[in-house]
Structures are given as C-alpha cells and as structure tokens.
Design a protein around this nucleic acid. Sequence first.
DNA 1: CTGCATCCGATAAGATACTG
DNA 2: CAGTATCTTATCGGATGCAG
Lengths: 114, 114
Amino acid sequence: MAMDHYTQLCPRFEKAMELLSKRWTALIVFRLLTGPLRFSEIDNSLPNLSGKVLSERLKELEVEGLIRRDVYPEIPVRIEYSLTDKGSALTPLFKDIGQWATEWIVLPSDSETM
Amino acid sequence: MAMDHYTQLCPRFEKAMELLSKRWTALIVFRLLTGPLRFSEIDNSLPNLSGKVLSERLKELEVEGLIRRDVYPEIPVRIEYSLTDKGSALTPLFKDIGQWATEWIVLPSDSETM
DNA sequence: CTGCATCCGATAAGATACTG
DNA sequence: CAGTATCTTATCGGATGCAG
C-alpha cells in the first residue's frame, strides 16, 4: 500500500496514528486503563461494539503488543485482557485527550451553564 | 445513532475520539500545526489523500471549530486553512503521540541499531 | 485553484447463529 | 464464557467531471 511518500513525514507518528485511530481501538485501550477486563466486560461496556469487531481489535492490539491476553485455566476458563507497558505508556495521551475534551468539547447536554 | 449507553462513560472523550480518529483528520491537523496552508499544499503533502476526502475533512474540522478557512480575494483567490485555538490546543496531544511513537513504535527500517 | 457531485469498488462494521 | 463463520449493510475512499 503505497504510502511511502508521506511516510517520510514521520513514519512512527504515522504508524501510531494508524494504530490508534482505528475505530474502537482507543476506546478499548481506554477501558483497560483501569485494570484487566474479560472479553464480556469490555463487550458490555461498549454496547455498540460487536463481538466480532472486539475480537478483531483485541487480536490486533495483542499483535501490536499493547495488550496481553492471560488465560486462567479455571472452570470455567477465565481470560483477561490487560495493558502491557507499551499500552500503559499511552496513559498521558489519554489524559491529554480527556483534558482537551473537557476544555473544548461542548455537548448538546451542556446547554445549561458550562 | 444509539450510542447513549456507553456515552455515559465519558461523552466528551468519546466525541474527541470520534473526531480525531477519523482517517486523515489527525494528520491534517498535524500538518497545520506549523502554520496556515492552502488546499493544494495539504493535498500535496498527503499524497494518498484525495481531494474529495480532504475537502470533506476540512469541512468537518471547520464545523467542529478546529480550523479556520480564510479567503483572500486576490486574483487568483487564495484560501488558507489554519488552526483555531481549539485546534492548536491539540498540540500537547500530538506531542504525546510523537513521544510514545518514538519510544515504542519500531519500524522495519529500525533493524540496525535503534 | 478550489471545491462539489456522482459513481463505484473496497473495506469495515453489525446481527445472528453456532462451536469449544 | 470466549470467540468464530457467515451474511448484509453501511461507510469510506478513489477517479472523474464540472463549476465558481
């Protein structure tokens, strides 16, 4: 996929954006910021996210090394997803997004005071 | 579009992500971080981005108040896009991404030392 | 030059049903 | 519970052509 031209701008930045800007991805990481979660927990916390897509994203994130998938061979089996160091390292980023959002994003429901 | 459920998590964060995670959007803002640019300048700096999509994104960003579109009635007309305060406020965010990318993203071309 | 309209193919996402 | 397979739909994006 010929993106060699603008890749020169800042390939790592590109890559990072490519990763994080994929739909749901950032939200999933955000969810995991507070600790390990099971598949269904993530699924339930993101109602519009289908199981299919969640499983896709989880796999991608695992491949990219942002999250870890731990299997606890209990009965029934328990599988937990958690952030790796690489994933946790995104914390300041999310904090910035949150801060920016707090300061600049106006919601319809903000009509009262703000 | 029923996203009311998980909107409760942090609606502003959601909105911000929705905004920034759209393909090309962040890259366009990133481009503008260094100053005003004309349509064709942005277009040329992002070779894989088509004029149609660029114009779509530019409009979205304008509607969201992240960028400003200034028309200079010269001959020929000159139109420049630049960041508003809301847009510039994203600077730390991009810095974070850049820092994270520098630290954690490994490129194929990094095989030598790094 | 700047940008919008249209068409069309590629991808991504959602719903549902089903397996280990 | 934790996914996967399949199907359908929605969205995206690229090319082209045209207008101000």
